[in-house]
Amino acid sequence: MKKRILIAPLNWGLGHATRCIPIINQLIINNFTPVIASDGIALALLKKEFPTVETVELPAYDITYAKKGHFFKLKLLKDSPKLIKAIKAEKKATKVLIETHNIDGIISDNRLGVHSKKIPSVFITHQLQVLSGNTTWLSTKMHQRIIEKFNQCWVPDHENEPSLSGKLSHMKGIEIPLKYLGPLSRFERHDIEKTYDIMILLSGPEPQRTFLEEKLLETFKTDSRRILCVRGVIEKEQITTTNGNLTITNFMTGKTLENALNASNFVLSRSGYTTVMDLSVLGKKAFFIPTPGQFEQEYLAERLDELKLVPYCKQNDFTIDKLENISAYEGLDGQNATANFKDLFSLF
């Protein structure tokens, strides 16, 4: 009888869901039965990627970003009672799911309440240190206490330098085993003919996703280059419109997105960590615009800029001429996951 593994990514943008795709595939290859649990657009995306895999809806965290970046931390603080309530509901739901769906093991990607003392539970995160400005020590300590409720912590990065996430994924003093997976991506690199000069890849929670979309579409509407904009809005139907050299689509999944990325000269996107891993595996040149007030994305963008890999600027400062800096940077060129999944899954 195949063991049933609950895999539960956080619904905060699409990054947590998309980096679970290679793990779900590996579970299937290694003769496990995955059960996907999430909510919102993360769950919608995974349903499209895995139409035959059983899915369950979990209580929503319903966290949104502040309209102005400098209120980011204040907004999170204001939302914290809602978050605590959601985690409690998530714990209850997990308890029921284990019984009703005969779950043998748990893989939680940043869902803080999805764990159990009864069955092996794994937490996936690249943030062993949670950057929050002058309260980093506190947010890191709180996160560490949550991580230690699990049996193992899987970190999607290289254990040694050069790593992609720098100080985020390297920290001493965590009491449970840390397993470094290498960069996780659902994509493979292919050398194919370039169809697009620029690919705009939008993602992340509202309202900042919309703010960036409006700014970029206005900026590029008269540009003569071949541009593809993937809005990152998961809807029932894929809708694509073309206006001159600008092609806009609401979302792309799987091989279609992989092909579009491989067929683009460079990518303009947020500096979310999953995007960084994807572009690294694909060996892409890029330009990053971190989400305003999001400490982790700002750190990653600054780090990759300092390493002369990818240039960046703040959202309000973006102008077309800044893209000329890309040619002076090396671009990302990493490797895919180095993890031995058979060994990792032996925990279950």
Score class of each variant (00 low, 15 high):
5 I>S: 08
122 V>C: 13
18 T>Y: 05
76 L>H: 10
194 K>G: 08
106 I>A: 11
28 I>L: 12
93 A>Y: 02
328 A>N: 11
202 L>Y: 02
118 K>V: 04
135 T>Y: 04
277 M>L: 14
336 N>G: 15
120 P>K: 12
276 V>L: 15
210 T>C: 03
209 R>C: 11
25 N>D: 10
90 E>R: 08
120 P>A: 07
86 A>P: 03
292 P>G: 07
344 L>F: 13
86 A>W: 02
89 A>I: 08
229 C>S: 12
263 A>L: 12
100 T>H: 12
301 A>C: 08
90 E>Q: 12
12 W>L: 07
14 L>F: 05
154 W>Q: 05
180 Y>M: 13
209 R>E: 14
20 C>K: 04
91 K>I: 07
9 P>W: 06
256 T>Q: 15
13 G>I: 01
111 R>W: 00
202 L>E: 09
52 T>R: 11
117 K>L: 12
36 I>M: 04
57 E>D: 11
203 S>I: 01
310 V>P: 01
27 L>F: 13
221 K>C: 00
307 L>C: 00
129 Q>H: 04
82 K>F: 08
236 K>H: 09
329 Y>T: 02
256 T>W: 09
300 L>K: 01
284 K>G: 06
121 S>D: 06
254 G>N: 10
118 K>F: 06
314 K>I: 11
262 N>F: 14
343 D>M: 13
151 N>D: 15
290 P>V: 10
326 I>K: 00
292 P>L: 14
334 G>C: 08
328 A>F: 09
39 D>T: 10
247 T>K: 14
289 I>P: 00
128 L>S: 06
97 L>Q: 08
130 V>Q: 05
7 I>F: 08
256 T>L: 14
269 S>A: 14
322 K>L: 15
317 D>L: 14
241 T>C: 09
18 T>I: 05
340 N>I: 10
56 V>K: 13
1 M>R: 15
210 T>A: 14
280 S>Y: 01
75 K>I: 04
300 L>V: 07
215 K>N: 05
83 L>A: 11
178 L>P: 04
288 F>K: 06
163 S>E: 03
144 Q>K: 13
309 L>D: 02
84 I>H: 07
7 I>T: 09
299 Y>L: 11
61 Y>R: 06
101 H>L: 15
133 G>D: 14
291 T>C: 10
6 L>N: 07
343 D>Y: 13
22 P>G: 06
39 D>H: 10
312 Y>H: 10
64 T>M: 06
195 T>D: 15
253 T>C: 07
226 R>V: 02
141 K>T: 14
51 P>E: 02
144 Q>F: 00
272 G>T: 07
228 L>D: 08
177 P>E: 12
50 F>G: 07
174 I>W: 04
139 S>Q: 07
43 L>G: 05
20 C>N: 05
72 F>M: 15
45 L>S: 08
1 M>Q: 14
37 A>Y: 00
118 K>N: 05
276 V>Q: 03
61 Y>L: 10
